[in-house]
Nucleic acid binder design. Structure first.
Lengths: 227, 227
DNA sequence: GCACGAATGATAGTAATACTATTATATTTG
DNA sequence: CAAATATAATAGTATTACTATCATTCGTGC
């Protein structure tokens, strides 16, 4: 990506952190270190003690940035959704035909992220894998409602909203654009996870990106007007 | 349901438990008690200590039935999938037209369970709510592959397989029946959760069952042949 | 070059969790 | 009624998820 882009930073909702990790060297080490560690051992085995050891800091220091490992995961997922939205807006710039826009949008939210962009200190390929496995754990908790009030899920809702709008451009009578898009986004995560661990729940073929193809077809068929 | 049905019991994979909870009074109390407690406080806050207190037993006794709270959740979700499959087979008996069968199948796996059947000591309405919020946590762990080898996810795969077969009856050329059905089943859970906690991710309306309608439409449109 | 405040490190401590172990007491079964 | 088995009572351990305190280092303004 462009040099300019390394000057642009994603501003995550301040309710996810105590001290913005973007503002210090330690903060950035926490973020890159946590992405590495989460990718290695998963959220359930992840502890601040292990992270501190990995980045050569201490538990107490990490707690000055994030209230809990749950809030850190919230930060990372928020960052991810904002990053995706950014890629979406960029990827749709100057594309005018709505079906074209929709097709590109679906690709962006369902494809596997393989390349680490030079966009930031964050490794998006690793983060993508973390999101696939762990993102649902951000909202499947007792605190959803409270955290939702604090706005931490806005980036996700906004992304869904943005693509829903394209759907309504194509078919203003379609009644379930949000359901459809949240089904697609969550579904794409599940399918990639299943392909790796529970393949009998998918039909993913080696080679071409079956997930993108499947969900693209699914959406276009779903929103087509009949009769 | 019929009187006969209380004589039929669902046999869950023995790899989920140390001692079959169906075989004793305490075992049954563990199951009913854990369903109540999980429904009240959620899996993350759930502990064997709290469950023991609730049912008037001790931690050590519970550990003789289940290795961990994770295994207990596995037991409950396995039971649930087997119960759904049973309802499916029953619900499709004597229905011959494949589209009819498919429509009923989708309803069975996506509808909200509101009534506790007299089928067993298990409250299916509560269990359904638990499944919606917690079932993904059974496989989003580091141990999936090992547990998968032990066959604990077979009931889920079988259910998906069974409905996929109906899809292939209707359209033998449809390439993604498993993806479609796992997307539908997981999606229906998410949509019900979103409706309650993150409504901007859905389009669920009060009254009619939007979830069943949405996924029924989605499937029939997806598998329809074109040209 | 030094004083100041802020950030970080080092260390310790707590309550809760997820178990395991041991022994005592019921309960079932042969 | 004895033996075997299941359960209860109690205690203990390692780890987790934090909180608290104090020392040290660092950058900045003067």
């Amino acid at each position: 990506m462009d040099q300019l882009l390394s000057k642009i930073s994603i501003q995550v909702n301040a309710n996810t952190y105590l001290k913005n990790p973007e503002t210090s060297a330690l903060g950035k080490k926490i973020i890159t270190g946590s992405i590495d560690l989460l990718d290695e051992i998963g959220f359930d085995c992840f502890t601040f003690r292990k992270l501190a050891a990995k980045i050569g800091s201490t538990e107490a220091s990490l707690y000055r940035y994030f209230e809990s490992k749950h809030k850190l995961l919230l930060y990372l997922t928020s960052w991810y959704w904002l990053w995706l939205e950014y890629r979406l807006v960029f990827g749709l710039a100057n594309i005018h035909a709505a079906p074209d826009r929709l097709e590109r949008a679906i690709k962006i939210v369902t494809e596997e992220i393989k390349e680490d962009s030079s966009f930031s200190h964050i490794n998006e390929a690793k983060l993508n894998r973390i999101i696939i496995t762990e993102s649902a754990k951000t909202y499947l908790t007792r605190d959803v409602d409270q955290e939702n009030k604090e706005g931490v899920f806005l980036p996700y809702k906004q992304l869904v909203g943005r693509i829903s709008d394209i759907i309504l451009e194509i078919n203003p009578h379609y009644k379930y654009p949000h359901m459809l898009m949240s089904t697609v986004i969550e579904g794409a995560h599940h399918q990639r996870y299943f392909a790796e661990h529970l393949p009998r729940l998918t039909d993913i073929l080696p080679g071409e990106d079956t997930t993108v193809k499947f969900y693209t077809e699914l959406v276009f068929k779903a929103i087509k007007e009949w009769k």
